[in-house]
């Protein structure tokens, strides 16, 4: 399983890439593999303000539907519309296929998340 350096990770297998006050969020290689062929993704609306821990998206495979939780609070400023037509991009390139970008409300929340090493450690135990 690929775990990319320089990203933040959650125990629910989401990743966060921070650029200034903007955070891109997606699901990890482990998550996409566990789900199998992704057939659909439900995206939130731009402008929605959500709290850390809120489910902001649902990723569906043929046999499963999985909520994606927001690792950090923020206002949705971009959604990856390409995924609406080609959800398989998440399978093909999980770290390249961000789902949403949020404007961070509280950067200190990032401190609660794992870095690549910690996530690797977590994965080897949990997953």
């Amino acid at each position: 399983m690929e775990i990319k350096k320089g990203l933040y990770y959650t125990e629910e297998n989401e990743w966060v890439r921070v650029e200034g006050n903007k955070a891109y969020i997606g699901i990890t290689d482990y998550a996409q593999d566990a789900l199998g062929d992704i057939v659909y993704i439900e995206l939130p609306d731009v402008g929605d303000t959500l709290k850390a821990g809120d489910a902001f998206s649902v990723v569906e495979s043929v046999k499963a539907a999985s909520d994606v939780f927001l690792p950090v609070s923020g206002t949705v400023i971009e959604i990856n519309e390409e995924l609406e037509d080609s959800p398989e991009l998440i399978n093909e390139d999980p770290y390249g296929s961000w789902i949403i970008a949020v404007d961070l409300l509280d950067v200190t929340e990032l401190d609660e998340l794992m870095d690549a090493e910690a996530y690797e450690e977590f994965s080897s135990q949990e997953n």
Binding site: V39, Y40, S61, V62, K63, A65, D67
Partner: peptide, 13 residues
Amino acid sequence: TLQAREQHIRRSK
């Protein structure tokens, strides 16, 4: 098809 909407997969959701 589109079974991921349904109760046998989503249960309480």
